[in-house]
């Protein structure tokens, strides 16, 4: 009989007293399955403790700064907080760029379709709390229509945000060297292809849940790429070579 999960965990974590440890070791001498499980678990534990930190995307600070600026304003807290002159944004050509980018970023996050089984089954419009329960078929039909309406709304929202970001990126693309411009175009082409394929799948089958998710994920990826592009333009206009290099490196990794 194998030791319990708790006992093996304690053994792997070195939390057993000598007697309990000896008992497990006697079992391990004869049980290949447990011995390999213990060896692999120890290796996983060791590697897990040495994982690297991840750097957040550069746009994260832009989003946060904008959110705090909006939050600080109504209460009048920290009147000088988040002065627009910071980060070189006072220069006219960059002020609109930064403002437009952060507004778009703030408006285009948060769309996620829940799996159908996880959706709350809201009563149909006009039904009373004590009205008879609608049939399963009617309920499923209403849910499907609700999902498609939700998807259309999300799609519309993403498209507006993406259009705005594209305008910014296109107007400022002269700052890019040919290689960076090619990387951006390549990444955009891959995402656009995914959007086209998801749309084609949805035209054939509007209720196709993987295609719905794929379309939203592709929009989200395009938003993220355009946000990185705008962040890159900002860093290059500011002359921040290190910041620009970090973003370009991230773009290249995504395109690999």
């Amino acid at each position: 009989m194998h030791p319990s999960e708790e006992a093996l965990t304690d053994y792997i974590d070195g939390a057993l007293d000598a007697a309990a440890r000896a008992e497990i070791e006697r079992h391990l001498e004869t049980c290949v399955a447990c011995r390999r499980l213990v060896d692999d678990s120890r290796e996983i534990k060791t590697v897990a403790a040495s994982l690297d930190l991840r750097e957040p995307p550069i746009r994260s600070w832009m989003r946060l700064e904008r959110a705090i600026k909006l939050e600080a304003r109504p209460a009048g807290r920290g009147a000088a907080f988040w002065d627009a002159a910071r980060l070189g944004w006072a220069r006219p050509q960059l002020a609109w760029l930064a403002a437009a980018a952060v507004i778009l970023v703030a408006t285009a996050v948060g769309f996620k379709l829940l799996p159908r089984g996880a959706r709350p089954s809201a009563p149909a419009a006009g039904t009373q709390a004590n009205a008879p329960i609608v049939s399963d078929a009617a309920s499923a039909d209403a849910a499907a229509q609700s999902v498609e309406a939700e998807l259309r709304q999300a799609e519309d929202h993403y498209e507006k945000a993406i259009k705005g970001l594209e305008q910014i990126a296109n107007a400022e693309q002269d700052v890019f060297d040919p290689r960076t411009a090619a990387t951006l175009q390549k990444n955009l082409a891959v995402i656009d292809q995914a959007i086209s394929e998801s749309r084609a799948a949805l035209r054939a089958e509007p209720a196709n849940e993987p295609a719905q998710q794929s379309l939203l994920e592709s929009f989200k990826a395009k938003m993220a790429l355009l946000q990185d592009t705008v962040a890159l333009i900002n860093e290059m206009r500011k002359g921040n070579e290190a910041g620009a290099a970090r973003i370009v490196s991230g773009l290249k990794q995504k395109g690999d």
Partner: peptide, 19 residues
């Protein structure tokens, strides 16, 4: 109201928190 101070705090801890 010194925005640079909050940015410094963010820069110091963002990678650990993001990870």
């Amino acid at each position: 109201g010194d925005a640079d101070a909050f940015e410094a705090l963010y820069r110091r801890h963002a990678a650990r928190i993001y990870t």
